[in-house]
């Protein structure tokens, strides 16, 4: 059973799981602060990939610079998204509105609307097909270790994900903006009353979450050689499942569940036909909702 192919699949699963984790963190951060699911997160992922691709085709800079471009566009997309889809629903600041299900759902739908509009716009401009990526930027150069063969993209995914996950933890635990984010996520009204600028904290959360998403989109695009307007949908769903499994507001839980999900998918595809892999995520979602309504790591504040 533990043949080379299997180990190979596990490593593939781990790297794709890390990508889900990066996206799931974006979801989780924003959910933590606003209590709303940001359905446009998949489009931020797509924007990151397209921004990087445009930089490549226009300027052909080194990969490092391409990542910075994706980072900048991700931050911008997060900022804009908050302005367009989320801010208008926070006009009412009293407690009843903050807890109102109707306002939460309106916000959720507005993020879904922005997601659809952005995706359709991208299809209008770029066409819905996969974009061609210059060969030298594809992250598919094989690296052989013993009998195993990896793509250099996998190492980049490993390295970058771990750096970003670690960086995020540091940011949340040791910086002022991190403390503000944790405060607002815990109790937005209490935070505002002791002088925390909640609006700015929310923007910061969007910018940070979207940056992670955009970079994930770029690396996956280059690694899988597939950059197209609807590319954010599938990983968006997986990351959403990881967030729900992790208990909605637990970053650690989301990361662990994203890794489990990625591995489970990879193992499934190694025993069954390709198409079954996608089913795993939905199966996990159903199992979580039925048996663990507050998530596997549910310090959850409420049922999913």
């Amino acid at each position: 059973m533990f043949d080379v192919f299997f180990v190979q699949q596990l490593v593939n699963g781990l790297s794709i799981g890390l990508i889900y984790a990066l996206m799931a963190i974006g979801f989780t951060l924003i959910f933590g602060v606003l209590n709303v699911v940001n359905f446009a997160h998949g489009e931020v992922y797509m924007i990151g990939a397209f921004a990087g691709l445009l930089a490549i085709t226009q300027l052909a800079p080194p990969l490092f610079a391409v990542i910075l471009v994706a980072l900048a566009f991700g931050a911008l997309a997060g900022f804009g998204l908050e302005r367009i889809a989320f801010r208008p629903f926070r006009r009412f600041r009293d407690e009843a509105s903050l807890k109102s299900k109707a306002i939460r759902e309106a916000t959720l739908l507005s993020s879904l609307a922005v997601s659809i509009i952005v995706r359709e716009l991208a299809e209008k401009i770029f066409g819905s097909n996969m974009q061609s990526i210059p060969q030298e930027y594809l992250l598919l150069k094989p690296i052989e270790i013993g009998p195993l063969s990896f793509a250099n993209g996998q190492f980049l995914i490993f390295g970058l994900s771990i750096v970003m996950l670690g960086g995020l933890q540091w940011l949340l635990k040791h910086t002022r903006v991190g403390l503000s984010i944790r405060a607002v996520a815990n109790n937005p009204m209490g935070a505002a009353y002791v002088g925390i600028n909640t609006e700015r904290t929310i923007i910061a959360t969007f910018v940070i979450g979207s940056t992670l998403g955009a970079i994930a989109g770029l690396i996956v695009g280059l690694y899988q050689g597939a950059i197209f307007p609807a590319m954010g949908f599938a990983p968006g769903v997986k990351a959403f499942v990881a967030m729900v499994m992790g208990g909605l507001s637990s970053i650690g839980g989301a990361v662990v569940c994203a890794l489990i999900l990625g591995m489970a998918e990879a193992i499934t595809t190694s025993f069954f036909a390709q198409g079954w892999g996608d089913l795993v995520a939905y199966l996990f979602l159903v199992i979580t909702l039925v048996f663990f309504p507050t998530g596997l790591f549910g310090g959850g504040r409420e049922r999913v």
Binding site: T175, R176, V177, L179, S180, A183, A191, V194, G195, I196, N197, R200, A204
Partner: peptide, 14 residues
């Protein structure tokens, strides 16, 4: 958080 709120901060300092 209270102390943070009192001081405020620029985005860079944050």
């Amino acid at each position: 958080i209270g102390a943070l709120g009192a001081l405020g901060h620029s985005p860079l300092a944050a």
